[in-house]
Design a binder for these strands. Structure first.
Lengths: 148, 148
DNA sequence: ATTTTAACTTGCTTTATGCAAGTTAAAATT
DNA sequence: AATTTTAACTTGCATAAAGCAAGTTAAAAT
């Protein structure tokens, strides 16, 4: 039950991006990982937007196959799988941030705090760099390969 | 036959963006308008990715309702409708550009030319500003209200 | 040894997408 | 003026994806 069997593969960067994460759920999983620090199936499942179990399983497999995330078994609990963003996934941060800025401007119900919007507008690069490092530090604790 | 009846409306900016253009087609129509200068139904229809007629009609209506585009009748040809980006639609340019940059990096078949990628990386703001002005100038020719 | 928990899978219903053909009104051609 | 062509759709039906409830498996906790 995949999101889309037909990949467009025209070389167009917008089409490529849409084929990668242009569906109703993929980017929400990435958001949960990037902004909320979520790492496990049940965390994603209990996220506010209530993704269906089969769809979540499918998206995680798909994102892994696309190299956006990787899956590892929790060393402390063999039942639990931990999902982390790869560098390819972390590289989506600027896209997410631009979406944030746009939505903060046009969604009257936005939860984006004015001071966050202001930081994005006036100090974008630094904001993204900080976020990136936060993610990398969080993940460094459990990705064995990153510790040489 | 809408894209999605259920809007999530959680206040989350990522969810809001996805509810607006997080489907397989909306952003391609916006791309056609922003980058290719397309303005009519048939131009969108004949675009490389081959959107279905009913889906195109639906997306155009939806984008108009969301205030991303507006529809006007061609003064020179009463059969033809012209679609133009609103300021809300033009404000999506940064999102599109970040997607371009990401895809240019990760799609081995990207059509993004190295010099374009380079401009985005090194001169992002100016690049976006130029694009924005190009769009506004193109549209100014036919949007009666913008000519005071 | 039994129960609970985490991560799924399966089957079925609903919704969205895809495709071919048909409609309407305005413009161009004869 | 009548006919054909063109632009922008709509309609009906098939296929595919998403949503929902229930069931399975293996590891951890009791």
């Amino acid at each position: 039950m995949p999101k889309q069997t037909k990949k467009r593969d025209t070389g167009c960067p917008i089409a490529f991006a849409l084929d990668t994460f242009g569906d109703r759920w993929s980017l929400l999983v990435i958001r949960d990982m990037a902004f909320k620090g979520f790492q496990s199936y049940n965390q994603f499942l209990n996220s506010e937007e209530k993704i269906a179990t089969n769809v979540l399983a499918d998206r995680l497999a798909e994102l892994e196959e696309l190299g956006i995330i990787s899956k590892l078994t929790d060393p402390a609990d063999g039942r639990r799988h931990l999902y982390v963003l790869t560098s390819k996934g972390i590289a989506l941060l600027p896209v997410l941030i631009e979406m944030m800025q746009w939505s903060a401007q046009y969604d009257v119900n936005t939860i984006v705090k004015p001071e966050i919007l202001s930081r994005i507008v006036h100090d974008r690069e630094a904001f993204i760099t900080q976020l990136r490092e936060k993610i990398i530090n969080r993940q460094a604790l459990l990705a064995p390969m990153s510790r040489a």
